[in-house]
């Protein structure tokens, strides 16, 4: 576990998902930001999205287990 205190004072670098003007405001202040042309995952099909999330979770667990060895 990291400590939130250690994050204080660090440069904030932002991924913006959603309202584009939030990214524009950050750019104007020279904050490093990347705006995404976000759209609902799996074409908005929630069943497919849930399945993809399951696969991804499983992949992450496999990766973590391999890393632990």
């Amino acid at each position: 576990m990291s400590n939130l205190k250690d994050f204080f004072g660090k440069k904030v670098k932002v991924i913006n998902l959603g309202i584009p003007s939030f990214a524009d405001d950050l750019k104007r202040q020279n904050v490093e930001v990347i705006h995404t042309d976000w759209r609902p995952p799996a074409g908005g099909n929630k069943k497919i999205q849930a399945l993809l999330d399951k696969v991804e979770n499983w992949q992450n667990k496999v990766k973590a287990a391999k890393g632990a060895k």
Binding site: K13, V14, L17, E32
Partner: peptide, 26 residues
């Protein structure tokens, strides 16, 4: 322009904050 968080993180590899204003269900 990336279309999701993972793709965005590949462009800004040391991003440390995600500002989320997508519909609540996502």
């Amino acid at each position: 322009v990336p279309t999701n968080q993972e793709a965005a993180a590949k462009q800004l590899t040391d991003a440390n904050m995600v500002l989320i204003s997508v519909p609540g269900e996502y």
